[in-house]
Design a protein around this nucleic acid. Structure first.
Length: 565
RNA sequence: AGCCUCAUAGUGUAAUGGUAACACCCCGGAUUUUGAUUCCGUUAUUCUAGGUUCGAGCCCUAGUGAGGCUACCA
């Protein structure tokens, strides 16, 4: 269950923790500093959770040496970044259960340092102003098998480069007129080393620095400097930056930095039936295919939160998936397992009927009660009990009655008994149908004296079903979520996302719920017995108004599987 | 095509060069006033070919397959 309940579990060291342990043992560092460096250009998703749990987790594990993890916004591209995203990212990291304390940083706060480093590279003859167009640069870069060719500007005098760079910074040039490039190796088999761009001109307003700058550093140049400036010891990133490491190290070697961070790459998280790229999530949001970044069907942290996925379950999931350099795809079933596992222990039980069928108790007068007492959690007496009102009419699940049941169906049908959970055993009497042949009502009778006691001898009753009293039960809007996509790998879908959207990803029903649920607070999570885990919607659910519940995840249902339901 | 990285049950991860294991999923059984939970059990694994070694999932070579790289994105 919760990770906090099992802190002593000596988890196997993954390859990154192994490296850190070795570095510590070798006396290479006196403390460990990691960082989580999102670009504020979208909302965080479950893939980021893997990185967050890794970086903040490592810091927590090395508290003895005062280790820490920085939250740093990698905001070097003003065209794509917004303050709204900064706020959502902070909220999501905190919700996941991690604290950055004093260590909140913005790459944009280092702009002057980046600039000074660039000047230094120019002075050292290691950078130059390029005036070729982007297209010319592309052509001269060569390709995977042929080396690039030198730009005519590559050997410009240091003084001229310096003057030109100053003019770039002063705003003397239009966007695209020139860039600053590192002078490395146009013949390198690693394309990243073929004189990469360090600075480009962007006459854009920045969310943090406003209009102070019109030149902005590229990721490859800025990132190692950010890490070094913050004394990061281990810079953990995903596999696609593997080929960038030589360049990362080049900047560390050639710029006046206070220390030498080490970049280590790991495989990003892939999940079946799930789209995990920010660009594609943005597309889903912008095209209105979902209700927003916090749509409960999305793998965004805000979506999962609204869906009722508990943060500890997500943390446990991140532990279970492990950490390697193998490009794998984890089955979402593992995430769902962790969610059920956590919720099973933490959620109080309540009763709700999603597809109501009326039952009239013909002999209710034989033992009329006001209420029955039901445990809030059968495995946890400390969760207490509650009184659930009852009367002579109630709702049961339409599925729980069969006119012509197969032998292994244990619930209600002609000639059968069934237990009302927490209440009486009832016996079938008759049922009504409308003109179309639909069952409209069941008549049954209670077995007096069967509340709170074992099934009497001679009565065959194997199942207990959930129910809601008709006199006091209230209507609720219940949203049943399923996978957003109908195929395992939506990224590979031909014809775009629309072609593989699951039409059943959202079903809204009007259900009957026990009266106490009408007063539930937004975010209240519980198990609807025999149905699944539900949470009062954090946006649309308001106490006093019609309750709105989201299905977090359904219960396992082995009967349903057998019956092909 | 060149360079870099990776390859263990269906899925994801373990295994100082020394009996290949854990979790999820699947299937079966027991318990059950949730066909849930819990408990027990079943099936199934080192990409291929060479080499080093008393001994290779692990080391070496080649092959195969997968991912990444030819942005003034990160």
């Amino acid at each position: 269950m919760s990770d906090s309940a099992t802190p002593a579990t000596p988890a196997k060291l993954d390859f990154i923790r192994e490296i850190i342990a070795e570095d510590l043992a070798a006396g290479k560092h006196s403390t460990i500093i990691t960082r989580f460096p999102p670009e504020p250009n979208g909302y965080l998703h479950i893939g980021h959770a893997k990185s967050i749990c890794l970086n903040f987790g490592i810091a927590q594990e090395h508290a003895a040496v005062n280790a820490r993890c920085h939250l740093r916004f990698d905001d070097t591209n003003p065209e794509k970044e917004e303050s709204e995203y900064v706020e959502s990212i902070k909220a999501d990291v905190q919700w996941l259960g991690f604290e950055w304390g004093e260590n909140l940083y913005f790459a944009s706060d280092y702009f002057q340092f980046f600039y000074d480093c660039a000047v230094r590279l120019i002075q050292d003859g290691k950078a130059y102003i390029e005036q070729d167009s982007a297209e010319e640069m592309r052509v001269k870069r060569g390709n995977l098998t042929t080396p690039g060719t030198h730009s005519p500007h590559r050997e410009r005098a240091v003084e001229d480069n310096l003057a030109l760079f100053a003019r770039m910074r002063a705003g003397d040039f239009q966007e695209g007129e020139c860039v600053l490039r590192a002078k490395i190796d146009m013949a390198s088999s690693n394309m990243n080393l073929r004189d990469p761009v360090l600075y480009r001109i962007m006459h854009a307003h920045h969310h943090n620095t406003g209009d102070a700058w019109c030149i902005y550093p590229m990721y490859d140049f800025a990132h190692p400097l950010e890490d070094a400036l913050e004394h990061v010891t281990h810079s953990l990133c995903t596999l696609e930056f593997e080929n960038h490491r030589p360049l990362y190290d080049w900047f560390i070697e050639n710029c006046p930095v206070p220390c030498k961070p080490r970049q280590i790459e790991f495989a990003r998280l892939n999940l079946t039936y799930t789209v995990m790229s920010k660009r594609k999530l943005l597309q889903l949001v912008q095209e209105g295919l979902v209700g927003g970044w916090n749509d409960p069907r999305l793998p965004t942290l805000s979506g999962l939160r609204r869906r009722g996925y508990p943060a500890p379950a997500i943390r446990d999931f991140c532990k279970r998936i492990g950490l390697t350099k193998f490009n794998s795809t984890t089955d979402v079933a593992l995430l769902e397992f962790e969610v059920r596992d956590f919720l099973n222990h933490s959620s109080p039980r309540r009763m709700a009927v999603l597809d109501p069928l009326k039952v009239v108790l013909t002999n209710w007068a034989a033992e009329p009660l006001d209420s029955v007492v039901v445990a809030n959690h059968p495995q946890n007496p400390a969760a207490g009990e509650r009184a659930v009102p009852v009367s002579g009419e109630l709702w049961i699940e339409r599925d729980d009655f069969m006119e012509d049941p197969p032998k292994k169906f244990y619930r209600l049908g002609p000639g059968r008994h069934v237990r009302l959970r927490g209440g009486h055993i009832i016996r079938y009497v008759s049922h009504d149908k409308d003109a179309a042949g639909n069952i409209t009502r069941i008549h049954a009778e209670i077995l007096p004296g069967t509340v709170g006691v074992d099934t009497p001898a001679g009565v065959e009753c194997r199942a207990a079903i959930h129910w809601v009293d008709a006199a006091t039960g209230v209507d609720a809007e219940v949203r049943l979520y399923d996978r957003l996509f109908s195929v395992e790998d939506p990224d590979a879908a031909e014809g775009g996302f629309t072609s593989v959207l699951n039409p059943a990803s959202l079903t809204t029903v009007t259900a009957k719920v026990e009266p106490a649920l009408a007063a539930a607070e937004p975010g209240f999570a519980c198990q609807f017995e025999r149905i699944g885990y539900f949470v009062a919607d954090s946006v649309d659910h308001q106490p006093g108004a019609k309750p709105v519940f989201n299905r977090t995840v359904a219960l396992r249902d082995s009967w349903g599987k057998q019956a092909g339901r």
